[in-house]
C-alpha cells in the first residue's frame, strides 16, 4: 500500500490509516523537528542578545532572559559606530544595485534580443567567468586598484557592478528577456520605434519582476559582502556594516550579549527583505539550477 504516497488523486487524502497517510504524518513530524533545529541558532542569538552579562555566563544556560536587557541594543549600536557603518553600507549598496541593473539589463538585452556578430560566443566566454575562483582575480585586481590610488575608497566595491562583472545577473535577465514574445519588438520596430525605445518602453516595463530579483540579490550581496571591504577598506570610519561587525568580534569577544545584539541588527534587514520578496527569491534560485 505504499502505492499511496505519490498518488496525485485528491481522494486518497481522505483515506485514513493507510501506510501513505502514516508516512505523511512522519514527514510532517520530521519537518516540525527539523524546523526547530534550524531555528535554534537564531533563537539562541535572540536570547543571548537580550541577556545581562551575569545571566549569559550561567551554566547550564537559561533560555528566558531575566530581566530582558533591551539596553543591549542601544549599547551595541553606540559601542560600534553602527549608524556610521549603516550609512557607509548604503553608500555601497545603492550604487551597486543601480550599477548592476544598468549594466546587466543592457547586456542582457543585447544578448537576448539583438543579432550581432559573435554574440553567442562572447556570451559563452562571459558565462565561463562564473566558474573562476574569486581569489584568482582578487590579488591582481587589488594591485590594479592600488596602483590607480583607489584603495580605501568605495570605487573598487562599486565600479565592477557598473561593468557587469557578476555575469549571473546578465544570465538571469537574458533568460527573462528571451521569454518575452518577439512580436512585441518587431511590431514596435515596424511602427518606427528605435531599439533604445523598444528596450526602455517595452522590454524593461515587462521585466519588472526579473529586475526586482536582480536588485534584491545584488543589494543583499553588497550588504553581506565581507571579503571586498576587508581587502579594500582600511580606515575604520569607512567600514561597512559587515566589516564593522567583524572588527567588533575581535575587540569585544567577551561581551557576547552586545555582539549578539549587533549581529541581530545586521540580520534583521535581510530577513525583512526576504519575507517581502520570498517568491522572487525561490524563482531565481530554481532558474539557476534548471536552466544553467
Amino acid at each position: 500500500m505504499s502505492a499511496m504516497e505519490n498518488d496525485t488523486s485528491i481522494g486518497d487524502s481522505l483515506v485514513r490509516n493507510t501506510p501513505g497517510v502514516n508516512k505523511r504524518r512522519l514527514a510532517f513530524l520530521l519537518c516540525v523537528l527539523l524546523s526547530i533545529a534550524m531555528i535554534l541558532p537564531l533563537a539562541w542569538l535572540a536570547r543571548s542578545s537580550l541577556m545581562e552579562m551575569g545571566q549569559i555566563f550561567i551554566f547550564p544556560p537559561e533560555w528566558i532572559p531575566n530581566p530582558f536587557a533591551w539596553h543591549n541594543y542601544p549599547d551595541a549600536l553606540t559601542t560600534i559606530p553602527f549608524f556610521l557603518y549603516l550609512w557607509n553600507s548604503a553608500l555601497v549598496v545603492v550604487p551597486t544595485i543601480v550599477g548592476t541593473l544598468f549594466s546587466s539589463s543592457l547586456a542582457a538585452y543585447a544578448f537576448a534580443r539583438l543579432n550581432w556578430p559573435f554574440r553567442d560566443q562572447i556570451f559563452a566566454v562571459l558565462m565561463a567567468t562564473l566558474m573562476l575562483p574569486y581569489v584568482i582575480t582578487l590579488i591582481p585586481t587589488f594591485l590594479i586598484w592600488s596602483g590607480l590610488g583607489f584603495v580605501d575608497t568605495y570605487v573598487p566595491l562599486i565600479v565592477p557592478h557598473w561593468l557587469g562583472t557578476n555575469v549571473f545577473y546578465i544570465f538571469l535577465l537574458r533568460q527573462f528577456f528571451k521569454a518575452l514574445p518577439k512580436e512585441l519588438d518587431e511590431a514596435a520596430i515596424i511602427d518606427g520605434a528605435h531599439i533604445v525605445q523598444v528596450f526602455w518602453y517595452i522590454v524593461l516595463p515587462l521585466s519588472r519582476p526579473a529586475l526586482l530579483v536582480v536588485a534584491i540579490l545584488s543589494g543583499l550581496g553588497a550588504w553581506n559582502d565581507f571579503v571586498d571591504p576587508l581587502v579594500y577598506i582600511n580606515s575604520s570610519e569607512k567600514y561597512t556594516v559587515a566589516l564593522g561587525l567583524s572588527q567588533f568580534v575581535g575587540l569585544y569577544t567577551s561581551q557576547w550579549s552586545l555582539l549578539m545584539a549587533a549581529a541581530t541588527v545586521v540580520i534583521i534587514p535581510v530577513i525583512i527583505v526576504f519575507f517581502f520578496t520570498q517568491r522572487y527569491f525561490m524563482t531565481s534560485i530554481t532558474m539557476t539550477g534548471l536552466k544553467g
Binding site: 549594466s103 543592457l106 543585447a110 539583438l114 550581432w116 561593468l163 557587469g164 528596450f199
Partner: peptide
Amino acid sequence: SEITWALIFATPAILGF
C-alpha cells in the same frame, strides 16, 4: 543600427570582462 546598438549595450559588460 541594430549591430551598433547591440555593441553599445554590451560594452559595459565586455569592458568589465
